[in-house]
């Protein structure tokens, strides 16, 4: 794959990918941006292995998912939740961050697999089969995680309100 072709494909997908990672990281912009860069650089370095029969977004999601799992492994065992995190510095993006605070908080409290499945399904608009490919799981397990995740998220959102 040429660099131009790669850039063209990434241009279409980068926004969705960054949004997906931002939701996955519970609204932590720096973490999400670092992961997005890591994902895209890894994707470029292994672009020779990209098989056209898969959607480019599915392939990117698979890399992003692995980067995210690795990132969690590198981090401290306890996840940093927004309500117990450090105070946010006041920037232009702070208002926007607070707008989605409830969703970020609720997503942060979900188990990793449910959070990933929900984000892939709703934000990346991936099918069950594509989510299974990206997470290295099977479609039946993805369906279960999606159903359980929906229930948990609804409950958490209700508790937040």
């Amino acid at each position: 794959m040429t660099q131009e072709r790669f850039a063209e494909l990434v241009r279409k997908e980068q926004e969705v990918l960054r949004r997906f990672l931002l939701a996955l990281c519970g609204g932590c912009r720096e973490e999400a941006e670092d992961l997005a860069q890591e994902t895209l650089i890894k994707a470029w370095l292994s672009s020779e292995r990209y098989v056209e029969r898969y959607k480019f977004s599915t392939w990117l999601c698979k890399i992003a998912y692995h980067c995210y799992v690795d990132h969690l492994r590198r981090m401290a065992p306890t996840p940093l939740l927004l309500d117990e995190g450090l105070p946010l510095p006041a920037t232009e993006q702070t208002d926007a961050a607070f707008r989605y605070e409830t969703l970020h908080k609720a997503l942060s409290k979900l188990p990793m697999k449910e959070r990933t499945t929900l984000c892939l399904f709703y934000l990346e608009e991936q099918s069950i089969r594509e989510i299974a490919i990206a997470t290295g799981s099977n479609p039946l397990a993805v369906k279960k995680q999606l159903s359980r995740g929906r229930e948990h998220l609804r409950k958490l959102l209700q508790d937040e309100r």
């Binding site: 660099q3 850039a7 990434v10 241009r11 980068q14 926004e15 960054r18 949004r19 931002l22 939701a23 609204g27 860069q37 895209l40 650089i41 993006q93 926007a96 961050a97 707008r99 989605y100 969703l103 929900l118 709703y122 934000l123 929906r150 998220l153 609804r154 959102l157």
Partner: peptide, 25 residues
Amino acid sequence: DDLNTLFDNYRPELGDADEYMERLQ
């Protein structure tokens, strides 16, 4: 479902795409 609407409205500010692509390249 209701979650569709919630995620459809999830449009956080991500900054300029061209600038992002330039940095990435």
